[in-house]
Each structure stands twice: as C-alpha cells, then as structure tokens.
Design a protein around this nucleic acid. Structure first.
Lengths: 152, 152
DNA sequence: AAAGATTGACAGCTCAATCTTG
DNA sequence: CAAGATTGAGCTGTCAATCTTT
C-alpha cells in the first residue's frame, strides 16, 4: 500500500453545471480503496498484489516463464520483475532456473509452497471480488464496464 | 508512476451470470489509467501528484503548515511528509521554518517558485480534469458519483 | 508519558548504465 | 549490435525505533 495522499480533493461543490460533474480525484480514490482492500486481504497470506500477479501468471502458464515474458505480461519494466522475483525467491515461492535453449534467459518456476500460497491467495481474491460485486451490484454492469473501458 | 502490473486480469468472460459482472481489477486499472494521465501532465512542470498535493494544501492554507498537519490532511504517515518536504525543499518549492509557539514543530512554507509551479500545475490538473469529464460526460454523473461513494 | 519530526530498513515502481550472450 | 538480466540511483509509500520538546 504505497499511495500518495489526495484526501483534500474531496471537491464538495465548486458549483455544479448542467451535467453533474465527476471528480477524477474521487475516481482515483475509489480505485485505490478497492486496491487497498485487496492488499489487506492478501497480506495475511504473505502475498501482495504484485506477488500474487506473478504466481498467477506462472500457474496460468503451467510451466516456467522467462523474466522478460513476465515483465511483458505485467506491463512493467524488466528491472521491476528482477526485484520482484528476488523477493519471491526469498519467500520461497519461486525458484530461478536457467534456460537451456538460451543462456541469456532466466526462468521463474513455482515451488510447491508457491503453488500452495497461490491457492490461498486466489481464495482471498475471490472473496474480495464477491464483496466488490455486491457493492456494484445495484448498478448496471454493462454501463459500468463501458465506463471503465472509456477510461483505460 | 509506480504501479504494479495486473494486465493479465483482463477477464474476457469466465461466464456471465444474470447480471453482467464487473471486475475489480478492471476498476483498479481504470483508476490507475486516470492517475497516470495526471502524473504525465504534471511531469513536465516538474511536479508529481504528491508534490502538487503539498503545494495545493499550502496554497489553500494561505500560511505555513506543520508537517504533522500536512500528514493528517494527506491521510498519510508523518515520515512520508518528512521525505516529501525534503524533496520539495531540494526543488526549491518549499522552505522549512521553525514554529515559534512550539519548538517541536516544523512548518512548511511556500517559496515564490513554489507558488509559481503550483499555478502551472493547477492548469494541468484543470486540463486533465476536463478531459476526464469529457470521457465520463456520456454517463449519468449522479449515478457515477453514487458508484464511487459506494466503493470508498 | 505523549506529541512532533526524523532516521533506517523495506516494498514497489521507474530509468539509465552495465554485463553477458546471441 | 540486439536482447535478457541485473545493478544503482531516485521517488513514493510503510513501519519501527529514536530524539527532542511538551
């Protein structure tokens, strides 16, 4: 949970125009609130969102994956994955193995403990997703999805 | 822009129930997308969201503010503000002055350069907010605000 | 003792530079 | 030279420990 503040941008009502305006700060805040709930749920399992993401990708792949590939799939920089895998290796959730076909590459492989933690993490994720769905349930899902698609 | 990945949770359609479901990952992603746009707009001005937040608070206060007060208003930890003000001071946007009424306290005071940068930053924020409003404009603002309020 | 600020150590991210291998 | 991985430095955040002042 590494978030900048911004609580002050509550924007009570500078004056409302015809169409009721939506503050981007409120939107950002809401996203972080959801994120925080997820982080809080994963914490007790010994995971964070980034760590769970890596385990999740490895489970989905069903085989060891190069760090470059992980970076690509996580839409982040390579050096980020290097350090993330460092921590996952220290946790004992992942192992680094060498690629026999290309000696430049390094593969990340799940350990049994890593698999076990992914299961536990996935259960938490499911729980939080259901809570989230309950909260959003009263709104039109199709509409909300269209809104989100507009912003990304 | 310090964001964990999560691109893989695009959730194409595991199977749709009666009510179209909304992925919390999609929601988090959308919030980050907006955040990234804001960061990108502030960057060229020499600001980040946290830095702009501090300048903004100081402008709003109209007078020097203690670091503790800044932390409270930004809903973050005191040590965070200590380092943030370190960087703002290095930038020349803020000065640390001592509190005559309580020698434990340290006040953050805007420099002329800081004021000038806040003006520039505020213009960018306004621009991005307008772009955001345009994107969301086609949706019911009242509804969206209710959705956001539900999640926070 | 409690409050204000700082420091050190860490997680998570970025970028630029480097090193090895292809 | 490209590509894969790592390293070093910086930003933003957290927590725990410390130091000064109340």
């Amino acid at each position: 949970m590494y978030h900048s503040g911004m609580k002050e941008f509550s924007q009570p009502s500078d004056r409302l125009p015809d169409r009721t305006s939506v503050s981007m700060f409120a939107f950002i805040q809401a996203g972080r609130a959801v994120e925080d709930r997820l982080e809080a749920a994963l914490g007790p399992v010994g995971l964070s969102i980034p760590k769970f993401s890596v385990l999740s990708l490895l489970v989905k792949a069903g085989e060891p994956v190069t760090l470059s590939e992980l970076a690509a799939r996580m839409a982040c920089v390579r050096s980020n994955v290097t350090q993330l895998v460092d921590r996952l290796e220290a946790d004992g959730f992942v192992r680094r193995i060498s690629d026999s076909t290309d000696r430049r590459s390094v593969l990340a492989e799940l350990t049994p403990l890593g698999v076990e933690r992914h299961v536990a993490g996935a259960a938490e994720v499911k729980r939080v997703q259901e809570e989230f769905s309950d909260s959003v349930g009263e709104f039109d899902g199709v509409l909300v999805n269209r809104l989100l698609a507009t912003l990304v």
